[in-house]
Amino acid sequence: MTTSGQAAIRARRRARFAEVVREIASHPSAVIGAALLLVIIVLALLAPVLMPMDRLDVTQVTARGNESPSGGHWLGTDPSGRDVLGLLLWGSRASLLVGFSATAIAMVIGTTFGMAAGHFTGLTRAVVLRIIDFFLVVPSLVLAIVLSTVLSRGLSTIVIAIGVTSWAQTARVVRAQTLTIETRPYIERSRALGAGDRHIIGKHVLPAVMPLVMANTTLTVGSAIILESTLAFLGLGDPTTFSWGSMLKTALDTGAATAGYWWFVLAPGVAIVIVVLCFTLVGRALEAVLNPTLRAR
């Protein structure tokens, strides 16, 4: 490839990227979602600075348990006297980490299976489709619970359990897109030039399904975070790390909700709602931008 050619391609990609950014900027809800997300991610990264771990050490806390919100503890304290805001900050790290990495796993599996189900015919397609159908109909929560009990405890187990159970939707969407792409005459031309399966999938199908996968990613992150909280709430999470789900579990175990310590129940709950909402807002906008047929006219 010539340097001038590459420069031109880069320039066009930049232009396309700028166009996508402009389009997203025209959705006010997406801008709000993206801005909030950015703030949350920055706060999660800065958690060790803002709230050093030793201030959450049960042996060193000075506050009493279940203190209501005050100037010293903006969101009050938990039953062991730890600062709820601090727990929330540290919990966001686990939630976001699990959300992103589980989604990455789900996307890789979903895209691969989706393209395989769309591209191949005959036995391969039948087998792949049945596998996708299996994961679609099995309730993912139940499967994730089974997986996290069977595997050793820890954050990576949660990531794997969520990743393996939430790719089937993506696979279906990718398969549908693959099928439309495969009917295009340029695929026929490519075949007539002598192209094999690998070339067609890699050069033509994958770039065409990528925008769809990107939009799907943001939507899946939200549901992965919910699933993580659920698993932690059910006591299947990593007991050594904080997460929003485990905070809710502690709240339930210590009867915080019934005792009127609302700050300990509401804080992680609202945090989950906000993060998932942000991802959904951005994801919807991204979907509309990358898939012009959904765009309002």
Binding site: G5, Y186, E188, G194, A195, G196, H199, K203
Partner: peptide, 20 residues
């Protein structure tokens, strides 16, 4: 329709050369 809208002319012409 018989050219991939995302590929440049160079890539479209070189496609067969690369395949072989």
């Amino acid at each position: 329709a018989s050219l991939n809208p995302k590929h440049t002319v160079y890539e479209a012409v070189a496609e067969g050369i690369r395949i072989h």
